[in-house]
Write a protein that binds this DNA or RNA. Structure first.
Lengths: 148, 148
DNA sequence: TTAAAACCAAGTAAATTACTCGGTTTTATT
DNA sequence: AATAAAACCGAGTAATTTACTTGGTTTTAA
């Protein structure tokens, strides 16, 4: 039940874009540097996020990426699902997908997988990039106080 | 974020043991047949469940496995964690384990992973094998009514 | 014109998964 | 005592997935 680097890096990158949300595009190079990620690999992830409509890109010199909308309208769930697919713990329980298992209708374990899936979706869909920014500010304010 | 076959088969096998909870041991062969799983592979899983104290084994002819305690005292969470390890979506957030990430204390994404982990744990720890048996009975009663 | 950037497709080494295989030991039954 | 059923154990392995890299091309501001 681990997230792959796609989801992990994707959330980091999107959070970086959210912190730098200003109307100006942000280059992959700078995101990669700040977040300590491979630029070439990030490129692949951004392609996924762009196809999902979560980011816009600006090509050419001084180009880069920016959130397609404000941080409070983008959830962690949308980010992860666009990069990793459904959060369903088992394939037979992927949203809006038929299962080929003929026992599905009376399958008890299936009910368990559905509950896990729903609870994961509920958390990730409830956290927006703005929430992360708020957490970030709180965390760093506390850090500043602590360090005097 | 998929469960591996270890967790999936493990829950199935434990549910099978719960349905057959009587004091008599149940052979791997019969579990494998009923659940449509490989006997040799199941053996590995049972070793894990035994080490975790969730099942007891009886060796020799007419031997087999049985739940170590009643179905209402065994949760899906215990089963999955004993076979797959922590449900943490990211290593830096495994319960009772130090992370080597020095930024951890002020890491925002970490807060997200913790919330996902907690919510998964909450669901799986709230579902006992007895709950699954109850669901099973409900499901099959409804099936019987439907089929007349 | 140059250089910075996004875009794209394909390749690849390493790790993980989902098993199997070939035994040994234990024990109820005959 | 012999047999057979069963758990126990360690190692091996094919297939798949992951986490990238490489080598380009296209676009566009300066």
């Amino acid at each position: 039940m681990k997230l792959s680097t796609r989801g992990r890096y994707g959330v980091k990158a999107m959070f970086d874009l959210a912190l730098n949300f200003s109307g100006e595009p942000v280059s992959l190079k700078s995101i990669a540097e700040r977040q300590g990620l491979s630029e070439a690999y990030l490129e692949q992830l951004m392609a996924g996020l762009r196809k999902a409509g979560l980011v816009k890109s600006v090509r050419g010199a001084q180009g880069g990426y920016m959130l397609s909308t404000s941080p409070d309208k983008i959830t962690v769930g949308e980010i992860i699902r666009s990069l990793e697919g459904s959060m369903a713990p088992v394939d037979c329980v992927i949203e809006n997908e038929e299962t080929d298992c003929e026992k599905a209708e009376y399958c008890v374990t299936r009910l368990v997988w559905e509950r896990i899936r729903d609870s994961i979706n509920q958390v990730v869909d409830s956290i927006t990039l703005q929430d992360m920014i708020d957490d970030y500010k709180r965390l760093h304010q506390r850090k500043a106080e602590k360090e005097g």
